[in-house]
């Protein structure tokens, strides 16, 4: 217990050093809380149409204005935040999970299994992202789950390669040999001995993947394969408003600013985590 405590406090001390990351963390927490709470508190529904109040600029009753169907933009941005953040988080976790499993198996067992899995990874990397996005997008019409799957298809390969590399270099180390000599199962060795050594890159990867997934979702919306109406996401709100950017600018401000803010803070957070988790890579000044 004591040892863990010191590890944690060391991590925290280093993390605190990265002021941008610290601020980012607070912004993200604040953002997540408002996205969860506000849709319950606000007196509007994200799908409630009011054609008499279309395109209202920001006001006291509608702080973010109203959209092309007279819906309150604040509640839509918040609800869209739930979707966008959920897409970001789930994609990050899911694609990292797939990547870790494939990378771990390939790196640990090596040989023909490694060869097959790495060719599979090459295969996924070789197909242009646009083909995967559009073809998959046109085959399964965009529900939130489908979008998550499609974006994940684009992102697992990098983690897989990373983890394989880590495992390749670790499995020859003495402590693995020792564990094997003691009769530990492969599964146990992977989970108990190897994986903890790869925790840092995995966590950093998850963080960065959140931001990346949110951006891909917005690009997907631009290409016409995003999340279906009336469910809002920051990406599809921004895309639907861009052609009236000059007439009704507030419709792009808020979802756009949210995307920028989230991706930005998530990246700073990742940067800070990297510094804190991989101390060998940072020079303390």
């Amino acid at each position: 217990m004591g040892k863990e405590y010191t590890l944690w406090s060391m991590f925290w001390r280093r993390f605190r050093h990265h002021r941008l990351a610290l601020v980012s963390l607070f912004i993200l927490i604040f953002l997540s809380l408002s996205v969860i709470i506000l849709p319950f508190v606000l007196p509007y529904d994200y799908a409630e149409i009011n054609l008499k109040e279309r395109f209202q600029p920001p006001s006291l009753s509608h702080p973010f204005g109203t959209d092309d169907l007279g819906r309150d933009q604040l509640v839509r941005v918040m609800y869209g935040g739930r979707i966008s953040l959920a897409v970001g988080l789930i994609v990050a976790l899911f694609s990292t999970l797939v990547g870790v499993v494939i990378g771990a198996i390939a790196g640990y067992f090596g040989g023909i299994l490694d060869n097959i899995l790495m060719r599979l990874t090459d295969f996924a990397l070789i197909i242009p992202a646009l083909v995967i996005l559009m073809v998959a997008g046109s085959i399964v019409a965009g529900g939130v789950l489908e979008i998550i799957l499609i974006i994940s298809l684009l992102m697992w390969m990098y983690v897989a390669r990373l983890i394989r590399g880590v495992f390749l270099s670790l499995k020859a180390k003495e402590f693995v040999e020792a564990a094997r000599a003691c009769g530990a199962s492969h599964f146990r060795i992977i989970v108990k001995h190897l994986l903890p050594n790869a925790v840092a890159p995995i966590i950093v990867n998850i963080t960065l993947a959140v931001g990346y997934a949110i951006l891909i979702e917005s690009a997907l919306s631009f290409l016409g394969f995003g999340i279906q109406p009336p469910i809002p996401s920051w990406g599809n709100m921004l895309q639907r408003a861009q052609h009236t950017m000059i007439l009704y600018p507030w419709l792009t401000w808020f979802p756009g600013a949210m995307i920028v803010l989230t991706v930005l803070t998530v990246n700073f957070l990742g940067d800070g985590l990297r510094d804190a988790l991989e101390p060998t890579k940072v020079v303390e000044v």
Binding site: L20, A219, I259, V260, L264, D271
Partner: peptide
């Protein structure tokens, strides 16, 4: 530099272009 390079990275590209 960190801030601005990340800010650039964080913009949805179609929005930035427009």
């Amino acid at each position: 530099a960190t801030f601005f390079s990340f800010l650039g990275f964080s913009m949805p590209i179609f929005w930035f272009g427009l």
